[in-house]
């Protein structure tokens, strides 16, 4: 029986849209409606997560791709972010149970020169297809600038007796 290698991460390929940009990769998750931006380092690591490459293989391949030194701590850091973003088939626990290094700790360890090889995954939740563009769920004041984020809001009239207040129907 062939045992699946638990330390050979596999990138998720189903239910996502991928757009390659000049130096980054954009991934849209069709299930969670989250969009993720992978910088060059994160994208290189994700690309090598094919279910057969070990962490060490990925570190070597990434170093070669980016022409930079990359150790396994950097790969683990990326895997942590990719796992949280649901971009791996399954999240991979670090074997020795050591806490993963934060980006700041990685930068301190690797030095400023290696900043280019620090993987970063940035995510947003795509806005809902609301029927209203300019509205809020409470009396409309300039303080509630993010009014579209307030739920149950349909319309904020600028004229009539309800002007400046959200009319909820």
């Amino acid at each position: 029986m062939i045992m699946e290698d638990q330390t050979a991460p596999k990138a998720r390929k189903e239910g996502i849209l991928i757009q390659e940009l000049s130096d980054e990769v954009l991934v849209y998750d069709l299930e969670s409606h989250k969009a993720h931006c992978l910088n060059k380092a994160a994208a290189a690591i994700w690309e090598h997560c094919d279910g057969t490459n070990s962490i060490r293989d990925i570190a070597l391949a990434m170093g070669s791709d980016l022409n930079a030194q990359a150790d396994e701590a950097v790969v683990w850091h990326a895997l942590d972010q990719l796992g949280k973003a649901s971009l791996l088939e399954q999240r991979i626990p670090q074997p020795d149970g050591k806490p993963r290094l934060s980006r700041r700790e990685l930068m301190r360890k690797a030095g400023i020169a290696a900043m280019i090889a620090i993987p970063v995954v940035t995510s947003i939740l795509a806005p809902k297809a609301l029927a209203s563009a300019t509205s809020c769920g409470s009396p409309c004041t300039p303080a509630s600038a993010e009014c579209v984020a307030i739920p149950n809001c349909t319309f904020c009239p600028s004229t009539g007796p309800n002007a400046g207040r959200c009319a909820m129907f």
Binding site: Q19, L21, S22, D23, E24, V25, L26, A35, C37, L38, N39, T122, I124, A126, P127
Partner: peptide, 10 residues
């Protein structure tokens, strides 16, 4: 960056 810009536009 391009990617950050697309995220912000989205």
């Amino acid at each position: 960056s391009e990617g950050q810009g697309v995220l912000a536009l989205l």
